[in-house]
Design a protein around this nucleic acid. Sequence first.
DNA 1: AAAACGGGGGC
DNA 2: GCCCCAGTTTT
Length: 369
Amino acid sequence: MQIFIYLEQFFLNQPVTMNFSGEITAWYISNKRELPWRETADPYKIWVSEIILQQTRVVQGLGYYERFIKAFPDVHSLARATTDQVMRLWQGLGYYSRAVYLHEAAQHIMKELGGEIPDSYRELIRIRGIGEYTAAAIASIAFQEPVPLIDGNVFRVIARLFNLPYEIGTAKAKKVTGEIAERILDPKRPGLHNQAMMEFGALHCVIKNPDCNNCILRNECLSFLNNNVKNRPVKKKRVKKAQRYFNYLVVRSGNSILMRKRNGKDIWKYLYDFPVIETPALEDPAGIIASEEWKYHFKDTGPPVQEVTPVFKHVLSHQIIHIRFFILQPEHFSGFHSKDYKWVNLSGRNKPAVPKPIHNFLSSYAFKH
DNA sequence: AAAACGGGGGC
DNA sequence: GCCCCAGTTTT
């Protein structure tokens, strides 16, 4: 097996301590950040924090965590909440499926599991939204189950320590990294060990320009000893982003504005935006107004257009969306009858959760009546 | 195995 | 502008 080649190379070259866990844990204890989810043993809070922190920086997730826990301090309160309430607290954080699954999981736990969060990796990973990483994190941190975890930080730390040449995300990388993680794990204190590995990656073994000369593992790190740190881990190539063109119809009546709840097959699941005419390429406003869709929505030539905004570019992980808003004169609307459409009072409470570009639009455009 | 899914921060 | 983050689900 490939792992033994690397481990063997390591053993041959470095007859030193090899107590990675001890060294990194000691580093952790004196260098860690103080974070709210580290002050609790409540599996619910640890679960919420782990979901929020998926693909998300601590500084970005911190406020969301505080607000979420305040609104929903336990599984029961989260289970009772409406989807709109949950999405509102997730608004702006991205990857909205996380919130949907978290909410559904809370309801599942109340209904089927007696309100008790599962306490083993094997049970946790069966819950939607909880994958290998999160199951291991909750199991080890909240329940002291001796399972290693691998997130982006741990993957980078291990890839550098052992100079692994495998590309992120491949089965080979997963297998070898997993075996090494299993070996390094301190089964007596898995939660501490796992958090130490992640924090070491987040604060010291950073992606760009790590301070290797002042690293506690500089005499044991194979990629450093081979002057290969900048090539580890091996990154995967970027995906090409699709271009999309949204023409939003801003339809108003009195204090209300017509919004549409997005369904699950596309981006921004369960968030609200406006009726939209999507085109395969950038089109002139005149072309949109003359389109069949416009006529379908408005029967004839439609309401007078009060303003057409410039095109805003919004970048997502896999798409670039070019967005333009058609602000229509109030009270000139007709056919929006689907149950997905909803009149929203903008001065009221409980406004629906909206994606970033809609939020930006609503913040910058004041409507006069 | 690859694609889809957000938004923000660092350089 | 490019890279990638305390990943998971769907195809």
